[in-house]
Nucleic acid binder design. Structure first.
Lengths: 219, 219
DNA sequence: CTATAATGACTGACCAGTCAGTTATTAAGC
DNA sequence: GCTTAATAACTGACTGGTCAGTCATTATAG
């Protein structure tokens, strides 16, 4: 973004950042198929011809939106787990808060919905997303949970399944915002919702005095 | 719907059940916009012209898929909460198991993904879905949780938020199956996944001996 | 004047929706 | 039973509109 070495004037600043931003917004809002490239170009303030100077096709634009949108952010936040020194519960809190701050609460928060909607039509991009985004994110969660178990802070449970159970409410919050939440349907306050979420994950919902049978047998 | 007064023989049984089923499958698989009505008709074994004998438009077909697909099933399972006599934890288990059995694990399991994808393009249907499906489902959950709290089995917590926290992993399981899960990406075994889920919800992940501060303060 | 960037009218493929025509089913006449 | 008439069910070629992708032209910079 910053001018690199032209003394008085950039020749052309246009890396297609506005185009990617406009495309992300419209893909999230209307879906891939229902988005017209004329509209994307118009929202970015250029013509459709210009769009085709930077992207070979609508598919290529979609791919670029996914790749250049999420992957850098995810890499950026990767060191958090190693650096952390406090309790694992706090690390879990921090991870979720960071995800919400950097992704969920920005335009990128629409990407999960977009990938869910279009995975079937773009298996190649879905695979890319799975390997470069989902697996990496799961890895952060896995290390956090393993850390908690090793330190005796968490119970030993099926980590792979726990990852999804813990992250699902966070994901759904972002997905909801970009789907039915945008139609005037109810919506929680994120801060307070995540607090309840963590509370439930760490303590469960059972009353402390009640004896609970975890795996389905009656008392 | 039932034959009114033909003594020995129905004239024609064809309510367009095959068309609705075919449309549901293809909408879930490819998305609304990317689904061609020629293909829907072909999958149902009729011509496109026949499809238009029963549905006024592609939009009307979509609406029918949502309405006639989910609402009856939801109504059918509504009495479960009243009839239940055991512990509230078991009721929660039963509700989730029933949802998975009747919706998640059938073709209807694709409807949540479909609504998420298309809510923006069909606000009217999204509102219908919210009021007739989501709110009703939340109501079952609410009564279950309230029951548990009243009986001292569950802690008092924010019920509205707890509903979503508890149901999100179940929903995500169904959504995953119809999006990235269909692209060869990993997938949990539902039975075992829901067991872990309930275990976590009821007991939390914290080790019993660890002192946990539920709401974000350090120890 | 040359080179580069940007444009927007144009084209061809695609597909929702239509409708004149075909086939299947039932009823009527004998 | 057999033939014909009447109606219902279904078909698929066609049309009109939409939109991804192209490219000859225009604008701008040096």
């Amino acid at each position: 973004m910053l001018p690199i070495e032209s003394p008085r004037q950039r020749r052309k600043e246009a890396r297609p950042a506005e185009l990617l931003a406009a495309a992300l917004e419209m893909f999230v809002e209307k879906g891939f198929a229902a988005t017209r490239l004329d509209d994307v170009a118009k929202r970015a303030g250029v013509s459709k011809g210009t769009l085709y100077l930077y992207f070979d096709s609508k598919d290529a634009l979609f791919k670029a939106v996914i790749q250049e949108g999420i992957v850098p952010v995810l890499q950026q936040g990767a060191g958090m787990v190693e650096r952390h020194t406090g309790s694992s519960a706090d690390l879990l809190r921090d991870l979720i808060a960071a995800w919400w701050q950097l992704i969920g609460n920005t335009h990128l928060g629409g990407v999960p919905k977009l990938m869910i909607s279009e995975a079937g039509n773009f298996p190649e991009i879905a695979t890319y997303y799975y390997e470069n985004v989902i697996l990496r994110g799961r890895d952060l969660m896995r290390r956090t949970l393993q850390r908690g178990i090793d330190q005796g802070e968490f119970r030993a449970l099926n980590i792979e399944q726990a990852i999804d159970v813990i992250f699902a409410p966070v994901l759904m919050m972002a997905i909801w915002r970009h789907s039915l939440g945008a139609c005037g349907c109810g919506q929680h306050d994120p801060e307070s919702y995540f607090a309840t979420h963590l509370d439930m994950m760490l303590c469960g919902i059972a009353h402390p005095s009640a004896t609970v049978q975890p795996d389905g047998m009656h008392s």
